Simulated assay, not measured.
Amino acid sequence: MASKPKPHRLHQLAGTTGPQSSAKRARTMSTESSSTAMKDAFAKYADYLNHFNEKRERVIKASRDITINSKKVIFQVHRMSRLNKEEVLEKAEKDLAAVINQYISRLVKELQGTDHWKLRRAYSPGVQEYIEAATFCKFCRTGTLLNLEEINATFLPLSDPSLEPLKVNVLDYLLGLADLTGELMRLAIGRISDGEFEYAEKICRFVRDIYRELTILFPLMDDNSDMKMKMDTMLQSVVKIENACFRVHVRGSEYTLLGSSDPSSFLLGLPDSEL
Rank of each mutant, 00 (worst) to 15 (best):
S162E: 14
R106K: 15
L107I: 05
Y255W: 12
I241P: 04
R106D: 07
R9N: 09
L267V: 12
E242V: 14
M29A: 15
V73S: 03
L220I: 02
S63T: 04
K71D: 09
R186D: 02
D95L: 08
S193Y: 07
M234A: 09
A92C: 00
L257F: 15
D47Y: 08
T233Y: 04
L214A: 04
R120Q: 12
E54N: 11
F139D: 07
R191G: 01
D209P: 04
Q12S: 10
S273D: 10
S159H: 06
A134H: 06
S34N: 10
L235G: 11
K167L: 09
L49N: 08
W117T: 13
K109R: 15
D65Q: 14
L156K: 15
I66V: 09
R191H: 10
S33W: 04
L270K: 13
L13P: 00
H11L: 14
A2Q: 11
V59N: 00
L96M: 09
D222T: 08
P271V: 01
S193G: 13
L96R: 03
E196S: 12
E86A: 11
F42R: 10
F218N: 06
S261R: 11
E129Q: 12
E93H: 11
S21F: 15
K61V: 11
V99P: 00
W117C: 02
R212F: 13
K4R: 13
P5R: 00
Q20E: 14
Y45L: 13
Y48S: 01
E149G: 14
K167Y: 04
G252D: 10
V73G: 04
S124F: 04
L235K: 14
F75A: 04
R106N: 13
L13D: 07
N147Y: 09
S22M: 13
F266H: 14
L111E: 01
T233H: 10
I68P: 01
D115H: 06
A188I: 00
L111A: 03
Y103V: 00
V73Q: 03
I192K: 00
K4V: 11
T181N: 04
N243V: 14
M221H: 08
S237I: 01
K44D: 10
R212P: 02
C137I: 07
T135M: 12
F218H: 08
L148P: 03
S193N: 15
E90V: 11
N147G: 06
Y199S: 09
P165T: 01
L235E: 12
L171G: 02
E242N: 08
I100K: 07
